[in-house]
Design a binder for these strands. Structure first.
Length: 158
DNA sequence: GCCAACGTTGGC
DNA sequence: GCCAACGTTGGC
């Protein structure tokens, strides 16, 4: 078995919250709309079973609120070639897709959200990409960061 | 609502 | 290929 990797995805809860994910059939949704190359490359590096931290941005407070798992590896984001979607991109076509998405399945809400302010104040977390590259919507997380956040979030086993 | 950071676009 | 202008994101 290859090593499990960890990621963090951001969403504005007013657009799509962790609670919304947990209400989906099988708690599973496709993660569409990523229109940034670095974020896309991270999406394409995800493997089924990888851990995903779900972060609420533009929120009060901004915080990691839940954990999810990659349920399907990257496949073309069909919303890119749908002119009626929220993020159409004429450069992406069925034949030559530019943008991709994965499926993620919600696993558990953190017993206690881990706010950005605490992440910044925690020595082992203050180098997270979340802090340094705040705008990147899909980013890698180290195993240490994953375990630390789960512990701070009140999740025993991790 | 403001502003900083930063990715993208387009003129040259 | 450079770089200024512009748009978007996201923290505060």
């Amino acid at each position: 078995m290859t090593k499990r990797n960890y990621w963090l995805v951001k969403s504005e809860p007013s657009a799509y919250s962790f609670a919304d994910l947990m209400k989906e059939p099988n708690r599973t949704a496709y993660w569409d709309g990523v229109r940034n190359f670095q974020a896309r490359n991270n999406l394409r590096a995800m493997k089924v079973g990888d851990g995903v931290l779900f972060y609420h941005s533009q929120s009060d407070p901004n915080a990691v609120v839940g954990i999810a798992v990659v349920a399907r590896e990257a496949y073309p984001d069909h919303t890119a070639w749908d002119p009626k979607s929220e993020h159409p991109d004429p450069k992406s076509t069925r034949d030559r897709p530019v943008w991709f998405m994965v499926d993620i399945r919600g696993e558990a809400e953190l017993k206690r959200p881990v706010p950005l302010a605490e992440i910044k104040a925690t020595p082992t977390l203050k180098h997270m990409m979340l802090v340094k590259a705040g705008r990147l919507s899909v980013q890698p997380v180290t195993e240490t960061e994953w375990k630390t956040i789960l512990r701070m979030g009140g999740m025993e086993k991790a």
